[in-house]
Structure formats: C-alpha cells, structure tokens
C-alpha cells in the first residue's frame, strides 16, 4: 500500500447512511474540517440527502437509497473531499451571557472547593476560555463543547438532579455544556444563561450551531432578567 492514503475514510452505516471519517481524535482543527466539509456539501446541494450530522471527527450522511447507491454516492463525494485544503470553518463567534452562582449555579461552591479555587477564580477561568462547538447531540440544541480549563474539571454528581432548568451552564468531568431544555441531569451547575437555546418557532430553532466558537461572559442578576425578557419578546 502506498503512503498516500487520503486523510479520510468512507464507512457505510447500513443501507441508507454513510460516515465520512476525517480522523480519530477530539481536536478543534480536525473538527473544523468536519464543519467545513458540511458547508461544502450544503453548497453542492446534492439531492436525496436528508441529513448530514457532524460529530467530533466525522460527518454522517443520511441518504435515500432510491436516489443513491453507496458506490455512486461515494464517487460523487470524493471531489468535495479533495477540494478540502484551506477551507475555513464556517462557524460564528458567540458570547454567551451567564449569571454564575447563587440559585442559578448551586454547585459553584462545591466545584470551587473541589478545584481548590475561590468561586470568583472559577468564574474568571470559565469565562476566560474559548469553546469550540464540536457538534450538537444528545438533545435538541445540546452543544458538545471543547476547551474547558482542565483546572475546572469535576466528576458528575453521584445523584443526578431530577430536573435541571433550561439554560443551566454546567461542568461534567472534563467538559462544560449548557442544558437547552429542562431535563434530568448529573452535571455540576455553575450558572445559567438567559438565552433560549432551543425554540422550534425560530429559524434556525437552535441559538448555538455546530462549528460556532463560544465564550462566556459573566453577568449579574439584573442583566440576566433584562436579557430573559428580551428572549421572551423575540
């Protein structure tokens, strides 16, 4: 076998989906290539593809087997992959307002103790980070974020909460995330954003999109309430 293996791999996912794997790790640069590929695919406007689902290192295409057979689709996709070099990641820079601590972040104190930091140090570190949105999954609008400061890592709660309010900003293991909807959850809650992350009446229905890059901005209760009212009016 020659040493010029293409940096991608096709893999069927049954008879109506296929995976394009661009690598094997969790890495912002690799993930940016996934989103760039998704954008090129959208631009190409191939018929018979219902969904293209980005993840850490792959793009999953759900296609209609009446429109495509696997081999033909792979041949059609190859030029899109070969055109890859230098394509920019289409994501946006978003600053998410977060009201840390208090009733919105009931685990902030425990997290500070666990990490050997003061609460304000935790807030400073969390809102200093830059977080790539690797993909959305698990629930509508739930962002899988990279970039958490390793000093802020903390295991999940032994007892998950039966109800975590929508907008909760949380840390679970070495990851941070935002709960788009009220749901049971085991992550450590450090704050809450007034942003509505999932709203089916809006277009697009999710506020944060795959490939975006997030920062968190600490806000006070008053600003939280003002922004929450704006969200209700929007």
């Amino acid at each position: 076998m020659s040493g010029s293996q293409p940096p991608w791999r096709f893999q069927p996912l049954g008879d109506s989906a296929l995976m394009i794997e661009l690598g094997t790790g969790i890495d912002p640069g690799l993930n940016a290539r996934v989103h760039a590929l998704a954008a090129r695919l959208d631009h190409a406007g191939l018929p018979g593809i219902a969904d293209r689902v980005p993840a850490y290192a792959s793009l999953c295409l759900h296609y209609d087997p009446l429109a495509w057979d696997y081999a033909t689709l792979v041949e059609r996709l190859r030029p899109l992959l070969e055109a890859e070099a230098g394509a920019p990641c289409p994501g946006r820079e978003l600053t998410v307002p977060v009201c840390y601590g208090g009733e919105f972040g009931p685990d902030l104190a425990a997290l500070a103790t666990h990490c050997g930091l003061s609460e304000s140090e935790v807030i400073a570190r969390h809102s200093a980070g830059a977080y790539p949105v690797y993909f959305l999954g698990f629930a509508p609008g739930f962002p899988y974020l990279g970039g958490l400061d390793p000093a802020l890592a903390m295991p999940r709660r032994a007892q998950p909460r039966p109800r975590v309010p929508a907008g909760s900003v949380a840390i679970g293991g070495a990851q941070t995330g935002i709960y788009p909807q009220a749901t049971p959850g085991g992550w450590q809650l450090v704050g809450r954003t007034p942003w509505r992350l999932f709203d089916p009446a809006r277009q697009p229905p999710c506020r944060i999109l795959p490939g975006d890059r997030l920062r968190f901005r600490a806000i006070g209760l008053e600003e939280f309430q003002a922004l929450a009212e704006q969200e209700d009016r929007a």
């Binding site: 989906a17 794997e21 689902v53 993840a55 850490y56 792959s58 999953c60 999954g137 698990f138 899988y144």
Partner: peptide
C-alpha cells in the same frame, strides 16, 4: 467509538455486553 452519527436500526454494544437496537426515536449521535 468516538461519538458520531447513529440511526434507527443500529446495533450498539454498551459496556454491559448486551446490545441495543436503536429505534425510530434514537438520538442523533
């Protein structure tokens, strides 16, 4: 497996060793 797209009909193997056949309402990844 690095989290990636899944679909109805996928047969997954969780650590329990007992497989799960994903249904119509399965998660996206």
């Amino acid at each position: 497996r690095l989290s990636a797209g899944v679909a109805p009909g996928c047969l997954q193997l969780p650590p329990s060793g007992l497989p799960i056949l994903l249904g119509a309402a399965c998660q996206t990844t």
